[in-house]
Design a binder for these strands. Structure first.
Lengths: 336, 336
DNA sequence: GCGGCTGGTCGAATCGTTTCAAGGAGAGGG
DNA sequence: CCCTCTCCTTGAAACGATTCGACCAGCCGC
């Protein structure tokens, strides 16, 4: 019942504590006969190492934390998957903390993690307010890698995806398939990702005289608001109605798609649609959705590798800012 | 840089170690002036408690683990959410472990968690093989609550949803809206959930002479196989074609829906569809999908509460097996 | 036969906390 | 003025592991 300690194992095997520890950590130092005796004692007692004591002695834990904005978001679950894959056989254990876009929760998690002396942290911070706390962690010797946020200051590693490029890709594709009247359906511009995606889209549109990009700014990036945006678009007279819509994420796009179908407008015949994120359900929509895909797993994997490097290189580590390129996946919703 | 210990705080504040500890844990025992001096020392040194030492002394940690089959599955993320909510102000910290339906990974996590002396574990085990390991944990004094699996043996708590009832609800609804030729699209019957849902559906169908339930067993519960099932159904001549389809999960249902739309069959006009799980995208489908919803957050919350009870009641705890009822959500895809 | 070496084992120190019995300084009562 | 009581504070003993110098017994070579 009460889990037994190394001391009892030692007594039962008739050896010293140090020898038991050696069996556990450097078995080749111990004579085979003794080793076997100790192992037997361990199994009969059902001994389980106490990790707290181990860590206390070692001065740090073997776990790495990933702090995400939303565990339910497929984007982050894939990032976590990537990170886990990268750290799988490094002896480290990955734990996932969910800040839920709540600065207070984030703060609490970071405090906890520091108390636990985690080996390192991968984090997508809720806002820029977290910066001071993160600086502190770094000063205290805990490596931090930023995920999906480029780092302005060069004193940490970060991985991100080029959202401006993503916007360019989407709109370039729409122009190439013949569209001239294009709508951008976005969310609050306070979200950096939304702003960047729009910037890319606008830049491409501005390069051509005959292309016009209108903007619909919705309060949030949900299907419900997508439907609402769809209504507004469908209500326009055929001549002034955009023939293509680029949405800041897939949920918006699904909403728009749904509304078009309901109104009897053909996709992509009357209106082409391109989303962003390439979530699993994008491909499964009634009309499979074109979307700008981000290398989610790769993002997590790379972040983990940077962290791993930082942990091992120690003082002479050079921080790196990695930026990935998104990729356009063309499906039926924007086929010619 | 090197994080400072309680000892240095004590020296800097000119008090003993014990006093610093008291400031941290029972501040009212310390004279205000002293307390302030200690707090100042703590902030100037940037002292952070060492949780390992704390736990070592305490004998157990303050964390509770949730071991899920798939972090990316919305079902589990909601369960986790519920558990977090229930434990939020109990001082416990929730960590999420992902077994990825892999017994080896599951085993490794359980080992790690036992070494960490976690307070308790919520788990959806990969298979019945885990049972022995779980028994062991329980014997060693770590409370375990099963999630989404009823416990046969009465020696632990569990929470589950009545899948047989879910099947009944779906088919009863279809019969009431006038359907007589109904298809069940399922997955491998080795999955208990699938078997139960089918059992419920079959039971209701058997109660009426004029109702016929055919079964399509697909290899996996994905949209791709849903489309395939859709093909088979659409290929049938109109007279023998089922007028309603009940799918073992929403992904299958979305696949079927997609194929119907592609073939020009109206949903629900020609074929009504009911799914299972009520995932977020069910409501967002081109034709909003009727689905059997499980109380996912409630499941997590209840599991956490049972665990909490078990932790606190100690010896005189009585294990309970809680079963929740699913609920049918009717949307357009099966509207009359 | 003796010095040195090697392989195996031991014991003690250490990590950073918490807890608790014990002590000390004032204050208040007799 | 002394005794008692309260309030603070202290110091030492855990908790369970790891690590490292010391020790001991054989064995080898000279």
């Amino acid at each position: 019942m009460a889990t037994s300690s190394i001391k009892e194992v030692a007594r039962r095997a008739g050896v010293s504590i140090g020898t038991v520890s050696n069996v556990l950590n450097r078995p080749d130092l111990v004579a085979p006969a003794t080793r076997q005796r100790v192992l037997d004692a361990i199994t009969t007692l059902g001994y389980v190492r106490n990790d707290s004591a181990r860590q206390l002695r070692a001065g740090q834990s073997r776990t790495v934390a990933v702090v995400v904005l939303d565990v339910a978001n497929p984007f982050f679950t894939d990032v976590v998957r990537g990170a886990e894959a990268a750290l799988d056989n490094s002896g480290a254990m990955v734990i996932v903390c969910n800040s839920d876009e709540n600065p207070v929760r984030e703060r609490r998690h970071l405090d906890q993690l520091e108390e636990q002396r985690v080996r390192g942290i991968l984090i997508t911070p809720v806002d820029n307010g977290s910066n001071e706390r993160l600086e502190q962690l770094i000063r205290n010797g805990i490596p931090v890698v930023l995920v999906d946020r480029g780092s302005r200051t060069r004193n940490r590693c970060s991985v991100a995806v080029d959202d401006v490029l993503g916007g360019r890709l989407a709109v370039t594709h729409l122009i190439e398939t013949g569209h001239r009247l294009i709508a951008f359906v976005g969310g609050p511009t306070s979200i950096a990702q939304v702003a960047d995606r729009h910037a890319g889209a606008a830049a491409v549109a501005a390069e051509r005289r005959d292309v016009k990009l209108s903007v619909l700014e919705m309060p949030a990036l949900t299907t419900a608001f997508g439907r609402m945006a769809g209504e507004k678009i469908a209500d326009l007279p055929a001549g002034r109605r955009p023939t293509a819509v680029f949405c800041a994420n897939d949920l918006l796009a699904l909403g728009v798609l749904q509304e078009m179908t309901r109104r009897g407008l053909a996709v992509p015949g009357d209106v082409a649609i391109v989303g962003y994120d390439d979530i699993e359900y994008a491909a499964a929509a009634a009309v499979p959705l074109s979307s700008v895909a981000q290398p989610r797993e790769l993002l997590g994997r790379t972040a983990a590798e940077l962290l791993y490097g930082e942990i091992n290189d120690g003082e002479n580590h050079r921080h790196r800012q990695v930026v990935f390129e998104p990729e356009l996946v063309v499906r039926d919703s924007s086929a010619r």
